[in-house]
Design a protein around this nucleic acid. Structure first.
Lengths: 113, 113
DNA sequence: GCGGACAAGTAGCGTTGCTACGTATGAAGG
DNA sequence: CCTTCATACGTAGCAACGCTACTTGTCCGC
């Protein structure tokens, strides 16, 4: 997938991942990769700054913990983050519907389990 | 709709509009606005540079004409542009499917005529 | 004459993600 | 013991892209 196609939607993805439970940065990267079937393989230099942006915005909160001598910063969605996610979802729906009208999205044949 | 959400997909939209026939810049803006139901109201400062980008890339070709004393630069899709559009379509499909998996797109109920 | 629709364009800005780099621990392999 | 790899975090600088604001010019209606 083209790299910068994410532009403007990364925050929504991160919030969506955190919606299902708190995770630390590295795990978020793996979650994105796993849930996307390998399509979304985002570098750390993309994720970590994005998480800090979200924290600054109040959409996520973080706390440190040490696991096996490794420092982890675990992020969780805040209430504001939940509201933001809802907005992002609505925004995404409108956006994809609009662009889809031109690019002919229609039915993705994928029938997930 | 949030402004910069288009990031990376504008070219595809322009090519898609031109696919249905050649148009001049101003008409492209109106076509986008009309076909999107007013959602896509892009300023000239967005469209004109984008068209020139596409022309430089060889995806569209242009020719001048004068209508009612008004200079028009009419753009049409080239063969390379058609191929590019096909690629963009595939890219969009993958992108929207991937992001949709996280944001929950599902089936847009729109069943166009 | 003046404002508004039509028609094209440029300059500069801000956002955003990416590349490249740096640091540190623990486990596995030679 | 030393190297390599996976885990885990982070920053600095860059490039792409669309937007805002502005400019120029014609034609039409008031």
């Amino acid at each position: 997938m083209k790299a910068q196609a994410l532009h403007g939607h990364l925050d929504a993805l991160l919030l969506a991942v955190l919606e299902q439970g708190e995770l630390h940065g590295y795990a978020i990267i793996e979650a994105l990769r796993a849930r996307s079937g390998g399509t979304l393989d985002l570098p750390t230099g993309t994720i970590y700054p994005a998480l800090r942006r979200l924290e600054r915005a109040g959409y996520v909160a973080s706390s440190w913990s040490t696991v096996n001598g490794r420092e982890r910063r675990t992020y969780r969605l805040t209430e504001a983050g939940g509201r933001a996610l809802a907005g992002e979802r609505a925004g995404w729906r409108e956006f994809s519907a609009t662009v889809g009208r031109f690019l002919g999205t229609d039915q993705p044949p994928a029938a997930p389990a």
